[in-house]
Amino acid sequence: MSQHSPKINDPKKYWLDDSRNVRKIIIAIFVVCAGLFAADAFYHKHPHFAAEEWFGFYAIYGFVMCVGLVLAAKLMRVFLMRDEGYYDKDE
């Protein structure tokens, strides 16, 4: 850390410091997501592909792909990951 180090031990209590408030935000996000998912049934679509007409296609596809990405990256860590100073070693 340099001399510019931010106020790590800032005594001021922020709204987000309270775990109950973080919980409120998470619940709000869940509600919004559920609402958007349900809304998929109520608008007219202009699909290019049949899959786009399936109920909740974009939400499910995005979710599955994100989970798959994280799992694949986890697997890649095993054989791709090097420690951070790996390329700093002198030849």
Binding site: H48, F49, Y58, Y61, G62, M65, C66, L69, V70
Partner: peptide
């Protein structure tokens, strides 16, 4: 191609 781009968009968001 479209499906991969859609996956890539989800990945960018991640």
């Amino acid at each position: 191609v479209w499906a991969v781009l859609l996956f890539a968009s989800a990945g960018v968001f991640h």
